[in-house]
Computed example of a mutant assay.
Amino acid sequence: MPPKVALSKLVNSLKGVSSRRLRQEYPELVRHYWRAQRLWSGSYFAGSAGGPPLSIVKQYIEQQNQPV
């Protein structure tokens, strides 16, 4: 995406494309999410980390609680 594209539009595009591809590759997802009729939540989080090395950021993310 060009740098001037709003982050919300980028996230919306990524969610839309990934949802379509996942539904094509795994048709059983349609049955599982038939009530919500959407695969992803409407929300998202974006953050930046300018100081620590990527290995530290990755370690932090991996140590977060997993959704139930």
Rank of each mutant, 00 (worst) to 15 (best):
P52W: 07
F45T: 12
L7H: 01
A6S: 00
K58H: 13
K15A: 03
A6Q: 11
G47M: 06
Y26N: 14
A46G: 08
Q59Y: 04
V30Q: 13
P52G: 01
R23D: 12
G16E: 09
L10P: 00
S55K: 10
V11Q: 01
G42L: 03
K15M: 03
E28P: 01
Q64Y: 09
Q63G: 15
L39T: 01
S8L: 00
Q66F: 13
S8D: 05
A36L: 13
E62S: 14
R35K: 13
R20M: 12
E25F: 05
G16R: 06
R38D: 06
S41E: 13
G51S: 09
K9G: 01
G42A: 07
A49I: 03
S19Q: 12
E28R: 11
I61G: 04
W40N: 05
S48L: 10
R35V: 06
R21D: 10
K9Y: 00
E25R: 14
K15S: 02
A6T: 00
V11I: 15
L22W: 10
P27Q: 08
G47A: 15
Q37D: 15
S55H: 08
P67V: 05
E62Y: 08
A6N: 02
L10F: 05
L14H: 05
P2E: 07
I61S: 04
V17E: 09
W34S: 15
L39S: 06
M1G: 05
S55W: 05
S18Y: 04
L29Q: 06
I56E: 11
V30Y: 02
V11M: 13
Q24Y: 06
P52S: 12
R20I: 09
A49T: 10
W34L: 11
Y26L: 13
K4T: 03
Y60V: 03
S18D: 05
M1P: 02
P3V: 00
I56K: 10
Y26H: 14
W40C: 08
P27L: 03
L54K: 11
V30G: 03
R35C: 00
L54V: 14
F45E: 02
P27M: 07
S18H: 06
K58T: 11
G47D: 07
Q63K: 15
Y26S: 09
H32M: 13
S48C: 12
Y44D: 03
E62V: 05
L54G: 11
K9S: 09
R21C: 11
Y33M: 05
S55P: 00
A6H: 04
P53D: 08
W40D: 04
L54E: 12
Q66M: 13
I56M: 02
R21Y: 12
Y60R: 13
Y33I: 05
Q63M: 13
Q37L: 09
L10K: 08
S8E: 08
P52F: 03
E28H: 14
N65F: 08
V30E: 15
R21E: 14
P3C: 00
Q37G: 12
S55C: 07
S19F: 04
K4A: 04
